[in-house]
């Protein structure tokens, strides 16, 4: 296990009340890698992703992002919870894209992208505006800067959400089923933006049902079921030649 891993999850456990959702998940994602997460509904994919930026608190195990322990500080063999401010600081370098976009509907597209850099990092507004415009141009939405999210199509909204996350210059991007709320003909435009990001060397963890995307862009694929990683490896191999029965059954249904 290398010290340079971007994400290192060790034996992650998470329960909601008496329901144990994650039962010991291990994962290493190297810098620049694209890791795709596959698995049936309810297997804990979203929960695991949300643990990585501490939207959910772990019950056991550790998650390190770029060497930093997420959500806690280890001192004298004891774990101390981080203050809310420190958690917020850790989240700045982790971008997240949600299934339902979650754009801020009361702000224009440009303000959505500028909000966090201006408020959180207190960067110069003029610079942020330029960067935000450039990011929106990159995701193909230069013409929409003054629109409100409600005026955009789903695919456009999701591309804004990606630009919004990128505006914080994250070193890691988390995607939770970014295309599953979209009409089929809009999926492509979002995947194209993500492929572009992957080519630029962004480290990404992507929960997705797009097998084609996983095969083409992914460096690693993990298959989760029942709160554990059942199988992992290079996407082409796992998809073409799954070793586990559960993986075979799942792939048989989605392919």
């Amino acid at each position: 296990m290398s010290e340079t891993a971007m994400v290192r999850a060790q034996d992650v456990h998470k329960s909601f009340g008496s329901l144990e959702v994650l039962k010991g998940v291990d994962l290493v994602v190297e810098p620049g890698e694209v890791c795709c997460v596959l698995g049936p509904s309810g297997s804990g994919k979203s929960t695991f992703l949300r643990c990585i930026n501490h939207l959910e608190k772990l019950n056991a195990g550790r998650i390190f992002v770029d060497g930093d322990l997420i959500g806690y500080r280890e001192r004298g063999g004891k774990l101390h919870e981080l203050k809310e401010k420190e958690v917020a600081e850790q989240r700045r370098s982790i971008g997240m894209v949600f299934q339902r976009f979650n754009l801020f509907p009361h702000m224009t597209v440009l303000d959505n992208v500028m909000e966090a850099p201006c408020r959180v990092k207190r960067e110069n507004k003029g610079e942020v505006r330029e960067r935000a415009a450039a990011l929106l141009d990159r995701v193909g939405l230069a013409a929409k800067v003054d629109s409100y999210p409600g005026q955009l199509s789903g695919g456009q909204q999701q591309r804004v959400a990606i630009a919004r996350a990128l505006a914080m210059r994250p070193k890691l991007m988390l995607f939770d089923e970014p295309t599953s709320a979209l009409d089929p003909e809009l999926v492509g435009e979002v995947l194209d933006v993500m492929k572009d990001l992957a080519r630029d060397g962004m480290t990404m963890v992507v929960v997705t049902h797009e097998i084609g995307f996983a095969r083409e862009v992914g460096d690693k694929l993990i298959f989760m079921d029942g709160g554990v990683v059942v199988e992992q490896g290079p996407p082409r191999e796992v998809i073409a030649n799954p070793q586990q029965e559960r993986t075979k059954a799942f792939l048989g249904k989605v392919l």
Binding site: L55, R91, R92, M96, N102
Partner: peptide, 17 residues
């Protein structure tokens, strides 16, 4: 919608913000 505060928190905004 709770997704709003989640998205904002994920961007690193503090609870007050």
């Amino acid at each position: 919608d709770s997704g709003q505060s989640e998205a904002a928190a994920a961007l690193g905004l503090s609870r007050g913000q």
